[in-house]
Design a protein around this nucleic acid. Structure first.
Lengths: 854, 166
DNA sequence: GATGTGTAGCTTCCCTAG
DNA sequence: CTAGGGAAGCTACACATC
């Protein structure tokens, strides 16, 4: 048997390789052995990618080299083969380059030694090949290059740095993946690898968790920030398979590196500062390890010595029980009376400042648990309510705790009125604590304690108070560092009063967030409004004024008239205020309109829409812009407030390259547009109405851009918008509505033709684009013949203008005209027949394909 | 004011539909993988299969027809597949190959042009703000209140926004 | 600049490994 | 038995070639 016969036999199955190895071994000393073998390689490297026989042959050759090395260590076959293959890495044929790189990668793996010259050539050729124009070649070259990595961790390491460059910059996912799987993990490469957990490709992301991170071994090689980041990315990934991979890594490798002890794992995640992630970690962990979940027990001592870690463990246990209705397991959580007791213990412990943060965290977890508990027990309820209101009165608690406590108190109270009365007491107490003075008479009239106020005052009176807040009495906005000013200007007593006011306002804010009462039917609300909120809106202290404006906004949501009166106030804040005031205005006016409908804004329509448009186009202020986009989205989605005015600027900001950094804006709008468009056919038509206009505007922007910013082409943009107004994508609950908007793209065609007439001769690029869009429109055959006729007549008038077109454009235009003509004739025929035949369902939903029509 | 509220038109999208949650659940699901802004947006083609299904449902009268054509179609396809599967991958090692042409140097540049190496944010996803229907149906000031988009049959005088009991 | 070629990305179908 | 991976086929687009 000849060398080529043996090699040829190896292509059929892997099973025969062992036998064939022996055969080939017998031929090794013949004169033509090496040339014959290289000849076989020549045949092999012409075989294009994906041929399974070629894979087998290559594998056989590798097996043989290995076999030979074992038998005769001095027989060096690898280097001659390598030398031969290197001749092909620059070949013209990409298949040859691909196969050579692939073979080199495999052979290099077998190499025991290599002479310096060969190594140098290999290295420099591969460094070139990883930049090949073919991605398949780059993949193999990258794998080959990864075989040349050494342990050198110096700053300059060309091989390593090239691989890292590919990992970040190669446009092909496969190349990045190949590098990800083959690059050596070291201090230098780790940041680049971790970053791939956010690769655009979900498979690459998954590989980070499933393949690469386990290679590291102990997760403690990562600092806490990196641990949290990697967990957050993985567990919150949109792709379930990535989530699962992250969860698996957590519940197998990471937990074992924490002595299989959940609490120890949590200790290494700094739960106090990463609550959200800790919850996710536990939830995902229990999903994969239900047996551990079921075995969790909480002894008496557990509750008496709560730590950050143990408390969040109990909280997640509880929340999973509640979510999944595991009532029996949930009995391991103490009852309300006991929980209240433990909570009180923590409030006491809080006085020790060294553990303040941890205690706050523990309290939050306990509050979450209480919130999930059955609140049927009267005694427990009263005890807890007492404990909560007491702590609110006597302690300075962080906002998150206050929020949770007040939310819980609403649930504990039997009615909203009870709740308000209780809160009123708390707020009064806190207010008085801040305004205790040796001489009571020094208290300013408008800062009088709420308890002294006429609690019977109705909304009307507070309204009149609000009316006095006409824009001109609002103090001018102070310097940015208002707090500093505040500290120097005010004496200690005033500071104390100011802080108690802030304190009260915080309580009021969370209180108002949780009530829905009609303002006039709950006499506590007008009292609070008049005695605390309104004075605070007038305050010279920026923090107080801001909080006051928020609380006033919340009050407005409970009272239509109050809302209507105060719109001007918020408009004024937007014009004259700093960013934080502007944001409040954006929020409050939006909520008011959503709450009461657009009619509430009828006196200030212009100013309000101007405000939102100004904010939307403020490229200098991303937060404002994003919030405006969100507010407008809500308007259009929910109450249809000036759709036709907002829709075009909204589309423009979405595609405008300058908003690329403003991801919140883009993601809000990315959600909004499809929902808006697919949500109703009227909305689709609204977008359709501005399509051409908007596209032309965006094309202008595109023309003015640098190459670097030209990521989205006008074609791409147009396709995305056209997709929004695709009638087949309308969300329809009833199939019979599927017939809506079938003519929408035909209308677009009309608009495009109109726009073509307007374009100048030097805008040939634009003309070309618009014409190419005609061919991509989705136009059904079943429209009435006049519709097509209308478009055809438009085309004819366009042709009369005699506008210069390149051949491909005019071809496309002709094709489109023919298709329309064809549609018209068919439609006419059908219309004649319909006189006799009632319906023809066959062609109801069939589309024309412009390209295929005669 | 009660009267005004009653007379308020219900503008919500859901007024067209019977089920509010269903609609937004659908959008949350269908937009789950298209969140990263226009640069990374993929236009989802309507699946041919889904379209056919829909068509079959509407043309229930021709259900029998459809079934039979489907049967014949699948069998034809499978025969076709088998025939095509007999692609010959055999490599011929007997003929010597001209190394001149095999290793012929390239005339043109083999490197990927520079502008292809320009990446969008190093091929990384942007930060995910997890925008969903809940986010856009929420008041700014009351994050626990979902805007209660009721059908227009509602006769209550409650405001449009309502504290979500959850 | 018209034309053909090649590739990327998608869907659909099939197989196999868990 | 199901899901995930891979191959085949299709389409749209980019590039090269003349």
């Amino acid at each position: 048997m000849s060398v080529s016969a043996v090699v040829s036999a190896s292509q059929k199955s892997i099973a025969s390789h062992r036998k064939l190895c022996n055969r080939l071994f017998l031929l090794k000393d013949e004169n033509d052995f090496l040339p014959d073998l290289l000849g076989c390689l020549n045949a092999l490297i012409r075989i294009k990618r994906g041929n399974p026989n070629a894979e087998r042959v290559l594998r056989f050759i590798i097996t043989f080299i290995n076999y030979l090395q074992q038998k005769i260590p001095d027989y060096d076959l690898a280097q001659p083969i390598l030398k031969h293959l290197l001749k092909g890495v620059d070949a013209k044929d990409k298949v040859v380059r691909y196969r050579c790189c692939q073979a080199i990668a495999r052979v290099t793996n077998m190499l025991r030694e290599i002479d310096d010259e060969l190594y140098g050539t290999l290295r420099s050729k591969l460094l070139l090949r990883v930049r090949d124009k073919e991605s398949t070649v780059r993949v193999e070259a990258a794998i080959a290059l990864s075989r040349l990595q050494d342990q050198d961790e110096t700053d300059e390491n060309e091989v390593r740095d090239t691989l890292l460059f590919l990992l970040q910059s190669d446009p092909s996912v496969d190349v990045r993946r190949a590098v990800l799987l083959n690059v050596e993990v070291s201090n230098k490469t780790l940041p680049f690898i971790l970053e791939r957990a956010r690769d655009v490709d979900p498979k690459n992301r998954r590989i980070v968790y499933a393949k690469v991170l386990p290679k590291i071994g102990d997760f403690r090689y990562l600092n806490i920030r990196k641990r949290i980041r990697i967990l957050k990315w993985g567990l919150k990934d949109r792709d379930e398979t990535v989530q699962l991979a992250a969860a698996q890594m957590l519940s197998t490798s990471w937990i074992s590196n924490a002595n299989n002890n959940l609490l120890e794992l949590l200790e290494r995640l700094d739960v106090v500062n990463n609550e959200e992630i800790a919850v996710l970690v536990l939830e995902n962990f229990f999903k994969l390890r239900p047996e551990i979940f079921k075995d969790l027990q909480f002894e008496e001592s557990f509750w008496k010595e709560l730590t950050a870690e143990s408390s969040i463990l109990a909280r997640v246990f509880n929340s999973i029980c509640v979510q999944q209705n595991l009532t029996e397991l949930n009995e391991r959580i103490p009852d309300l009376v006991q929980l209240t007791f433990f909570l009180e213990q923590q409030y006491v412990r809080m006085r020790n400042e060294t553990v303040y943060e941890e205690v706050c965290f523990v309290i939050q977890q306990l509050l979450h648990i209480c919130n999930n508990m059955n609140l049927g027990d009267e005694i427990g309820r009263r005890k807890l309510l007492g404990c909560l209101s007491n702590s609110l009165t006597t302690l300075e608690l962080p906002d998150q705790i206050v929020k949770l406590q007040i939310e819980l108190m609403v649930k504990l109270c039997t009615s909203e009125l009870d709740f308000c009365s209780l809160m009123m007491e708390v707020i009064t107490d806190v207010y008085e604590q801040g305004h205790e003075t040796p001489q009571q008479e020094q208290v300013e009239p408008n800062k009088s304690s709420p308890s002294e106020l006429d609690t019977d005052s109705d909304a009307r009176s507070s309204l009149s108070a609000a009316e006095t807040q006409s824009p001109d009495v609002i103090p001018e906005v102070p310097a940015a560092n208002a707090e500093e000013k505040l500290a120097t200007q005010l004496n200690e007593k005033d500071i104390k009063a100011a802080f108690s006011e802030l304190h009260c306002l915080t309580y009021i804010q969370f209180m108002f967030e949780n009530i829905t009462s009609d303002f006039n039917k709950n006499h506590f609300l007008p009292t609070i409004l008049q005695s605390i909120i309104i004075p605070s809106v007038r305050s010279h202290d920026a923090p107080i004024r801001e909080k006051g404006l928020k609380c006033l906004g919340l009050s407005c949501l409970l009272h239509r008239e109050l809302a209507k009166e105060n719109i001007t106030l918020y408009l004024h804040c937007f014009t004259n205020g700093d960013t934080s005031l502007q944001l409040i205005s954006i929020h409050v006016i939006c909520d008011i309109i959503l709450m009461f409908g657009p009619s509430i804004a009828e006196d200030h329509e212009q100013e309000i829409s101007d405000m939102y448009l100004t904010a939307l186009s403020d490229l200098e202020n991303q937060e404002l812009q994003a919030n405006a986009a969100e507010a407008i989205s809500k308007f259009l989605m929910i109450v249809h407030f000036h759709d036709d005015l907002f829709i075009k600027p909204l589309i423009i900001q979405y595609f405008e390259p300058n908003t690329f950094e403003n991801q919140r804006l883009r993601q809000v709008l990315g959600y909004f547009f499809p929902v808006y468009a697919f949500g109703s056919y009227e909305n689709q038509r609204r977008i359709g109405n501005v399509f051409c206009d908007t596209l032309l505007h965006l094309m202008e922007i595109y023309d003015s851009l640098d190459d670097d910013d030209r990521v989205l082409t006008p074609l791409n943009i147009a396709q995305q918008i056209l997709d929004w107004i695709d009638f087949e994508k309308l969300y329809m609950l009833h199939d019979n509505l599927k017939l809506e908007n079938q003519d929408l793209h035909l209308h677009i065609a009309d608009n495009i033709i109109d726009a073509l007439v307007e374009l100048e001769d030097d805008e040939s690029k634009d003309k070309k684009l618009l014409i190419s869009l005609l061919g991509k429109l989705k136009i059904p055959r079943t429209l009435p013949s006049q519709s097509y006729a209308h478009t055809i007549s438009k085309l004819e008038t366009f042709e009369q203008h005699g506008i210069l077109l390149d051949t491909s454009s005019s071809n496309m235009l002709n094709k489109f005209a023919e298709a329309m003509e064809y549609n018209k004739q068919i439609a006419q025929k059908n219309e004649e027949e319909t006189v006799h035949v009632v319906s023809d369902t066959e062609e109801d939903t069939s589309m024309i394909d412009v390209k295929r029509e005669p | 004011t009660t009267e005004e509220q009653q007379n308020q038109q219900d503008y919500s999208i859901s007024s067209i539909y019977s089920s509010f949650n269903e609609v937004y659940g659908y959008f949350d699901k269908s937009l789950k993988h298209n969140w990263a802004g226009p640069e990374l947006w993929r236009i989802q083609r309507l699946k041919q299969k889904a379209l056919q299904d829909a068509e079959n449902r509407t043309n229930s009268s021709s259900a029998l027809d459809a079934a039979s054509t489907n049967d014949t179609a699948t069998s034809i396809v499978s025969v076709d597949k088998k025939r095509r599967k007999e692609v010959d991958y055999t490599i011929d090692f007997s003929e010597p190959i001209n190394e001149e042409s095999l290793f012929a140097p390239a005339s043109a540049n083999l490197q990927l042009p520079k502008n292809h190496w320009r990446t969008l944010n190093r091929n990384l996803l942007p930060d995910d703000y997890h925008i969903d229907s809940k986010r856009l149906l929420r008041l700014f000031l009351k994050d626990n209140a979902l805007i209660n988009a009721r059908s227009n049959s509602s006769t209550t005088s409650q405001p449009e926004a309502d504290v979500d009991p959850s």
